[in-house]
Amino acid sequence: MTGFSIVTINWNNLEGLKTTYESVVAQTYRNFRWIVVDGASSDGSQEWLAGLDEPRAEIASERDKGIYDAMNKGLRKAVETPGYTLFLNSGDAFADPQVLERIVAAIEAAAVPPRFIYGDFYRKAANGSLTRIAAKPIERLPLGLPASHQTMYFENERLREMHFRENYRLSADYCMLIEFLTGMDRSTAVLQLPFPLCVFDTTGISHKRRFEALKEDMQIRMRFLQLPWVNAVTLYCLHYVHTHTKQLKAALGK
């Protein structure tokens, strides 16, 4: 029976944490662990977590060195059991209560058990509106993440060999995915699902500091994809213009 480790990191985001919790416990498929890594929050999150009566919750609250330090703590706990790990941070949610159930059905229907699973997602704006975003083919990985990391399920046997490189403060998830897939036959190891898996809260740090993240993406492409610097810089410039244009349109309400 396929198991899931759902890692949620949180720091002073109690309302977002509650949203994530409600989404997790609503899942119709019940073979999962909910691993919460709270960064010693001071907004009531610790007290709320301490009062939870949820047998699937495994909670730790202590100071950390940042987002990816916290995610690494969750990763190390998650891979103690077989199955798949999802990083669903506070404020993020499953797209609907049947997500895990549908993923299990897709795994069982696959000719070969996939090592990596991902799919579409909803982007949630500050005003609460949702926009469906289609995942990109995995062949476009050199251009960036094929979807939000909240849609990505990593097979734990392989994930035990991985960690988030904390020197990349905004794009360590992109780097880890590249390393995770290195050497795999992606035609059988990767399963892309054609339905929404999560609601991605866009108020997170990497979204707010998008231009800084673009620089890290460029460095990652050169180091881990061995992309020539001319190609990497060109991609950076294209992403920069695209991001600036999108933010300008949003500011103008277009």
Rank of each mutant, 00 (worst) to 15 (best):
Ser5Arg: 06
Ile9Gln: 13
Ile9Val: 14
Asn10Glu: 11
Asn12Ala: 04
Leu14Ser: 02
Glu15Val: 13
Lys18Gln: 15
Thr19Ile: 14
Thr20Ser: 06
Val24Asp: 09
Tyr29Thr: 14
Tyr29Gln: 13
Tyr29Pro: 10
Arg30Thr: 14
Asn31Asp: 11
Asn31Ile: 08
Phe32Ala: 15
Arg33Ile: 08
Ile35Ser: 00
Ile35Asn: 02
Val36Ile: 13
Gly39Phe: 11
Gly39Cys: 11
Glu47Asn: 13
Trp48Cys: 09
Ala50Cys: 13
Gly51Met: 10
Glu54Phe: 09
Arg56Leu: 09
Ala57Trp: 07
Ala60Leu: 14
Ala60Lys: 13
Ser61Ile: 09
Ser61Thr: 06
Glu62Asp: 15
Ile67Asn: 02
Ala70Trp: 10
Asn72Ser: 14
Lys73Val: 11
Lys73Gly: 07
Gly74Met: 00
Leu75Met: 10
Lys77His: 12
Pro82Met: 07
Leu86Arg: 02
Gly91Arg: 05
Gly91Ile: 06
Asp92Ile: 03
Pro97Asp: 02
Val99Ala: 03
Arg102Val: 10
Ala106Ser: 03
Ala110Met: 04
Val112His: 09
Pro113Met: 07
Pro114Met: 00
Arg115Ser: 12
Phe116Asp: 00
Gly119Leu: 00
Gly128Ala: 03
Ser129Trp: 12
Leu130Asp: 05
Leu130Ala: 04
Thr131Lys: 04
Lys136Cys: 01
Glu139Met: 05
Arg140Met: 12
Arg140Ser: 05
Pro142Arg: 04
Ser148Ile: 04
Gln150Lys: 04
Gln150Tyr: 09
Thr151Met: 02
Tyr153His: 12
Asn156Gln: 07
Glu157Cys: 04
Leu159Val: 06
Met162Gly: 06
His163Ile: 13
His163Ala: 15
Phe164Cys: 05
Tyr168Asp: 01
Ala172Glu: 02
Tyr174Asn: 01
Cys175His: 07
Ile178Trp: 03
Leu181Thr: 01
Met184Phe: 12
Arg186Gly: 00
Arg186Asp: 05
Thr188Pro: 02
Thr188Tyr: 03
Gln192Tyr: 02
Leu193Asp: 08
Pro194Gly: 06
Phe195Val: 00
Val199Glu: 04
Thr202Gln: 14
Thr203Phe: 10
Glu212Ser: 12
Ile220Trp: 03
Phe224Tyr: 13
Gln226Thr: 07
Trp229Ala: 13
Val230Gln: 15
Asn231Arg: 14
Ala232Arg: 07
Val233Gln: 12
Thr234Glu: 11
Thr234Gly: 07
Tyr240Glu: 10
Thr243Ser: 15
Thr243Gly: 05
Gln247Met: 13
Leu252Pro: 01
Gly253Glu: 05
